[in-house]
């Protein structure tokens, strides 16, 4: 047994766990803070994960966290006063992808966000400028689930290493 193995050994004298990069952050739901956090996530996982997977992870997390920043602020009495939600984010590298858990203390997520959906209708006369975010989240994730407990939203999903488009 090498000295490194001894240091990593668990109670039964076996090597206890492989070291894998993880990411955890508590952040204010502001676009600039979301951007800085995404850049840190890229740095954390770039040596372990392909550019393609990292790009999909970054896009999904941007969509989820920017939705919180844009829609989830709670009103505090006066109409011009609102509370910026606090986001808790965890990402763990697994054998088949990146498992993500995101919670926030903003207003409840409307149920239709997590229901299967298609693209907004593309009317070439009047192109849609929004409505793509949840479509992208659903397309790029697996095992997407949502739970509301007390004053927090809980969202969990996995970004697989291999992406198979739902609409090839």
């Amino acid at each position: 047994m090498t000295s490194t193995e001894r240091q990593n050994a668990g109670l039964k004298g076996r090597v206890s766990a492989r070291s894998q990069p993880m990411f955890h952050r508590v952040l204010a739901a502001r676009p600039g803070t979301v951007r800085d956090t995404l850049i840190e996530i890229r740095k954390r996982f770039c040596s372990e994960v392909s550019d393609d997977t990292l790009g999909r992870l970054e896009l999904v997390l941007a969509e989820v966290m920017n939705n919180v920043a844009e829609h989830a602020a709670t009103q505090l009495g006066a109409p011009d006063r609102s509370q910026i939600p606090s986001i808790h984010l965890s990402i763990v590298l697994h054998e088949s992808g990146l498992a993500c858990a995101i919670t926030d203390d903003g207003v409840a997520l409307p149920a239709n966000c997590v229901l299967p959906r298609g693209l907004p209708i593309i009317d070439t006369e009047d192109l849609p400028e929004g409505g793509f975010g949840w479509y992208l989240i659903q397309d790029l994730t697996q095992a997407l689930c949502y739970y509301r407990e007390g004053n927090r939203n809980f969202l969990a999903f996995s970004v697989p290493f291999l992406h198979r488009a739902t609409n090839p």
């Binding site: 995404l38 790009g55 969509e63 009047d126 400028e129 929004g130 793509f132 975010g133």
Partner: peptide, 16 residues
Amino acid sequence: DFMDSSGLGAMIALRK
């Protein structure tokens, strides 16, 4: 090297 759906919305607004 990165664009999200709000960036896409901005590009579509330019097209329009």
